[in-house]
């Protein structure tokens, strides 16, 4: 396969956009052509944040339903919601820690059972990898680094042609200096998590 379409989804504030840039830059570092896309604006007020990274000979920057090779879900409900982007051949990497929607928090509706959501996904796609990104990030020293733990799990999955060294180099050069150590630790923990 010479083309890879990666769909990222999460909730505002989870650092999905930084993860998008780190993934894109890592792929470039590894010698690939890259286009990425993100939606700003209203989505940042605690809403769903979706972005994409295309690696290889692709010009389009967005992903149609059923066409994601990899789905990186930063929140289990959002992974589930975005599953239409996947097909039976997709690899899904999902965080297992829910972010409770505002509506649920004020008593409107309930949050579904995470295991059941993930079981369904697992039964439909080629491979499902789950990690508790917040716990790993906490171990690394800052819960904000959960996005880097997610990238660690993605790198480990082998679903993309981007070596871990490319991620490490990008984290070193592209994330905030004061966070580099924690980010790298979180990445390594994600890498070792499976």
């Amino acid at each position: 396969m010479d083309k890879y379409r990666i769909y990222l989804t999460g909730v505002g504030g989870q650092g999905t956009l930084l993860a998008t840039v780190v993934l894109a830059e890592s792929a470039i570092y590894a010698g690939y052509n890259v286009v990425a896309s993100e939606v700003h604006g209203m989505a940042q007020r605690g809403g769903v944040v979706e972005s994409t990274v295309m690696i290889g000979d692709i010009k389009s920057s967005i992903i149609s339903d059923g066409e994601a090779d990899v789905l990186l879900g930063f929140e289990p409900l959002e992974t589930y919601r975005a599953i239409r982007k996947c097909s039976a051949g997709s690899v899904v990497v999902s965080n297992t820690v829910p972010v409770i929607p505002y509506g649920v928090a004020i008593g409107k509706g309930s949050y579904p059972d995470v295991d059941k959501l993930l079981d369904f996904i697992g039964s439909k796609v080629k491979r499902l990898i789950t990690i508790d990104a917040q716990v790993l990030a906490q171990q690394a020293g800052a819960v904000l680094s959960a996005n880097m733990a997610m990238l660690g799990a993605l790198a480990k999955s082998g679903a993309l042609p981007v070596p871990k060294e490319a991620f490490e180099e990008t984290i070193r050069t592209k994330t905030k200096a004061s966070f580099v150590e924690t980010n790298l630790r979180a990445f390594e923990l994600g890498l070792a998590s499976q």
């Binding site: 989505a43 409900l77 959002e78 509506g103």
Partner: peptide
């Protein structure tokens, strides 16, 4: 999905 889960929505909201 046989479980027919009702998905809570996550609209953008005031901080």
């Amino acid at each position: 999905d046989g479980q027919q889960v009702q998905l809570p929505i996550r609209p953008p909201n005031l901080c």
